[in-house]
């Protein structure tokens, strides 16, 4: 054991303890300062993302041809939605894999913006493929085709997934705003 160890004189032990306390404190303080700096940066990036999101909505999609497709669940507790795929006129437009938290949020009534894009005026077909676990934990995959007409101005379509008793067969319904 060296003089800086257990048998060191009192003042040296006190000094060693002080150094240890100070270094532990400075480590914690340093980590805290780092966290605060990261939080500030995160806040600035978040504000930038928010502005960009708004800008994106305005730049990419001219109002007259814009189509937004939303998704919601209608009292679907018997369906654990895994994923959804959306095609417009046979071309893949969007796909999404759901986390447990997102699914809970949808089940609690939230709304997802599944697709924003441009389509020409006239008739179109939306193809929706959903996968998930239905009642009795059975795996299911359902494909649905829905037709709509795009007229001038913004169009907002809401896909509502419903699965009603007694068979809890999932059904995709189209709601237009």
């Amino acid at each position: 054991m060296t003089a800086t160890g257990l048998y060191a004189p009192g003042w040296q032990r006190l000094a060693l303890a002080s150094v240890m306390v100070v270094s532990a404190w400075s480590g914690a303080a340093c980590a805290e300062a780092l966290d605060q700096r990261i939080d500030r940066l995160k806040s600035e990036v978040s504000q930038l993302s928010e502005s960009l999101f708004t800008l994106e909505q305005q730049v990419l999609h001219p109002a007259d041809t814009r189509l937004s497709v939303f998704l919601s669940l209608d009292n679907v507790e018997a369906l654990e939605l895994d994923s959804i795929e959306l095609s417009i006129d046979g071309k893949p437009a969007a796909s999404y894999l759901y986390s447990a938290r997102e699914l809970r949020s949808l089940q609690a009534g939230s709304l997802q913006q599944l697709y924003v894009g441009n389509v020409a005026l006239g008739p179109h077909t939306l193809s929706v493929t959903l996968t998930g676990q239905g009642a009795n934990d059975r795996y299911l995959r359902r494909e649905t085709e829905l037709d709509f007409r795009k007229r001038s101005g913004e169009a907002h379509l809401e896909l509502v997934i419903a699965a009603e008793a007694p068979d809890f067969e999932p059904e995709v319904l189209l709601n237009h705003w």
Binding site: S72, D74, L111, P123, E145, L146, D147, F148, R149, K150, R151, G153, E154, A155, H156, L157, E158, V160, A162, L173, L174, N175, H176, W177
Partner: peptide, 15 residues
């Protein structure tokens, strides 16, 4: 948009 014409038998629901 109040008058999108739905061509097939699409059920309308109130979300």
């Amino acid at each position: 948009v109040c008058s999108i014409i739905l061509m097939l038998s699409v059920t309308l629901v109130t979300a």
